[in-house]
Amino acid sequence: MNNYSLALNVQQRPEVLERVLRVARHRGFKIANLSMQLNSNNSTSIDMLVESEREIGLLTNQINKLIDVIDCRVLFSDPSAALVKQKG
């Protein structure tokens, strides 16, 4: 199992979190940790820790296709670091 940490910047729309979560589930990624924050500039930050046997590109490519996603970065994909963050 691989762990990946993602940082998303998305448009502030009521349904944007649902869109991201749906894509993650459907493309085979389990969400282990999640936080979101509304920003003052009409954007929203979403930080996610996801687990999957699959390559992270299969998820980030699909997330990047969402119209309301401004950008999506993979912060790390190191299994031990993911564990530390999960506990912290």
């Binding site: 349904e15 649902e18 869109r19 749906r22 459907h26 969402l66 119209i67």
Partner: peptide, 14 residues
């Protein structure tokens, strides 16, 4: 409908 549309459209609006 917006919720329903998420998995069967490229994009959707209400």
């Amino acid at each position: 409908v917006l919720g329903m549309s998420l998995s069967c459209t490229k994009h959707s609006f209400m």
